[in-house]
Amino acid sequence: MAKGTTIEVKNLNTWFGRKHILKDISCYFEDNCVTGVMGPSGCGKSTWLRTINRLNDTVGSFRMTGEIFIEGKDIYAPTADVYSLRRRVGMVFQRPNPFPMSIKDNITFGPKLHGINDGDELDEIVETTLKKAALWDEVKDNLEQPGTTLSGGQQQRLCIARALSVDPPVLLMDEPVSSLDPLSASKIEDLIVELKKDYTIILVTHNVQQAFRVSDRAAFLYLGELVEFDKTAKIAEAPSDPRTEAFITGRIG
């Protein structure tokens, strides 16, 4: 069972082409808690999240300076192995994106990549991860069904289970409920709170209320700048920057 780990970001700057997206960000994500990253659309939230599992590397025009340490190791060091990094940093996307295969194969895809081929072990992973994602009871009799036949909310929980299947200490979530109906959304919010016992979770959202409900610590990102990073309760009650206050009261963004 995974236990969360800490992430340290030092002087992070990123560009897409000539566009400066993230501007000199330094912060520290604590383990076993949910950090909510808020900010208006286009402020660089997703980019920030995707630097942590180096998914931006796949975009041709991406460039960055600065360092990110996970458990004290620089993930952008020339010797760093990007595949084992991504095994340790799971990701859930904005829209549910199950693979076009059965529910079971969706879960076993990751473990198989990393050399787990034993049938019983895989079955056990399927069961435990689906249980963690609160989906087991709904699908345990239909594991051979295509993942795409599930409802939107179930698909998103399947994607969470898939991310957990390789047992990563860190879980990145990029607006995981923004395309779901309110009921499914609240189920997933509950799930996030449940999961923080074992994982370090970074949750990107443009929904302030959601960030307040779910997160322990919150960051406010505005136009690529990290404006505020503090305990959620503190930000909710007395934000120290006027821009944060403007955002959470709905005047900007």
Partner: peptide, 27 residues
């Protein structure tokens, strides 16, 4: 094939070739 499908596979630690072969072509 939606980009996010490829990204989901890469984010699990798959190589580009595995992603292409097992996910993209399949879809």
């Amino acid at each position: 094939v939606p980009m996010s499908l490829r990204e989901a596979s890469l984010a699990l630690g798959a190589t580009k070739w595995t992603t292409t072969w097992k996910i993209t072509i399949r879809a």
